[in-house]
Simulated scan of single mutants.
Amino acid sequence: MKFKYLFLLAVVCATLHSCQILSTKKYKALLATQDSLKNRTVSLEEQVAALQGDTARLHRQIADLKGNITTLNGQVADLNTKYNDLNNTYTATTSKVNQLSGDLKKREARLKEVEEILRKRDEATNALKDKLQKALLGFQQSGLSVDIRNGKVYVSLTDKLLFPSGSIVIDEKGKAALKQLAVVLNKEADINLSVEGHTDKQKVANLGQIKDNWDLSVLRATSVSRYLTEVEKISPERVTATGKGEFQPIDPGTTADAYAKNRRIEIVLTPKLDELYNLISK
C-alpha cells in the first residue's frame, strides 16, 4: 500500500511541477492511468502473496524431503550393516562348504579304497571256497560242508567225521580230511583260522575229567588245532581254538537229527585285512 501512495504522490508532484493546466481530456486520461496503475498494483500484491505462499509451501516440502533423506540415510546405514553381516556369513559359509567338499572328496577316495579291498577280499574268499570244495570233495558225503558267511569261509565237519563217539581223539578219516584242508591252507599264508568246537545240549556222561559240553567243545577244538599246527605244520600264529559248547546250535530241535547237526567242528577262515584296518584307522 505504501508503494501505491508514493506512486500517486509522485504523479501529483510531477503534474504540479509541470505547471500546466490539464484539460478535461487529459485529466480523464490521467485518472484512467491512475486506475490502471492501481489495478496493476493490486495484481502485483496478489502475485507477491501467492509467491510468499508458494515459498512457504516449498520450505515445508524441503523440510519434509530433508527428513526423508535423513530416514533413508539411516535405512542405507542399516542395509550396509546387514550387507556386511550377510557378506561375512557368505564368506564363512563358502569357506565351510569348500572344507566339507575337500573332506567329502577324501572320504569318497577312502570309500573307493575300502570297496576295492572288500571286492578283492570277496574274490579271494570265493576263490578259496572253490579250492576247498575241490580239495575236500571226497568228504562232503561224510558230513563236511564249505560255505561263505559274512565274508568268511566256513568249513564245517560233523563230529562223526572227526571223532569216535564221546572222544576228543581224531580218527583216521578225520585226519585225512584235515590233511586235505591243510594242503590248501599252507598255500594261503594270508588266511587265519578259528577252530570252533560245538556240541548238542545233551549232558556229557562217562567222559572222565570232561565236566560238560563246554569242556568237550574246547578240547575237540584244541585237538584239531594241535593236529593242524603240529602235524600239518600250519603256523600256530594263524590259529585260534574256541569252544562254543551247546550255545550256538544250527538246529534248535530236540530230535536225533538236530543233535547230530549241532555236534560239529567249524573251521572259520578269515583273510588278513591289515590293509583294510590300516585304511579305516587313518
Rank of each mutant, 00 (worst) to 15 (best):
A14F: 04
K203D: 09
V218K: 00
T33P: 03
R121F: 08
C13H: 09
L162A: 03
L216E: 01
A221V: 14
L79T: 07
K2S: 10
A10E: 14
A92K: 01
Q99R: 05
R264G: 01
A63Q: 13
L185E: 00
R220K: 12
K175D: 00
G143I: 10
T71Q: 10
R121W: 13
I250A: 04
Q61V: 14
D85M: 11
I62L: 13
S142P: 03
E46F: 12
L178Q: 03
A260P: 00
A49K: 13
F3S: 10
E115M: 09
L30A: 12
K187A: 14
T229K: 01
I267N: 00
Q133K: 12
E246Q: 15
K2M: 15
V184L: 03
V224A: 01
S235I: 07
S194W: 07
V183Q: 12
T270Y: 13
R121I: 06
L162N: 00
I191A: 00
A14V: 06
T15K: 15
L178A: 04
Y259C: 06
N68C: 08
L216Y: 03
Q99M: 08
L128E: 08
A189L: 11
E123R: 04
R263W: 04
L31I: 11
S194N: 05
K173F: 06
D257Y: 14
E45D: 08
Q61H: 14
D274W: 12
G143H: 07
F247C: 15
R110Q: 13
K28P: 06
L37M: 11
A109D: 05
A92M: 05
R40L: 10
H59W: 03
E188Y: 02
V169D: 04
T255N: 10
L37V: 10
A32I: 09
D212Y: 08
L161Q: 09
L22G: 11
N98A: 09
K201P: 04
I265V: 02
L136P: 01
V183P: 03
D130P: 02
T70W: 04
L279G: 12
T242P: 05
S145W: 09
A56Y: 13
Q52A: 11
I265K: 02
T91W: 01
A49V: 12
L111F: 08
A205I: 09
R226W: 04
Y27I: 10
L58C: 11
P164Q: 07
T15S: 15
T254W: 11
D200G: 05
Y83C: 07
P249N: 14
K175W: 01
V12P: 07
D147P: 06
E123K: 05
T270R: 05
D85C: 02
G67N: 15
E113M: 02
Y227T: 05
K82I: 02
A32K: 13
L162W: 00
W214S: 02
L136R: 09
N80H: 09
D257S: 11
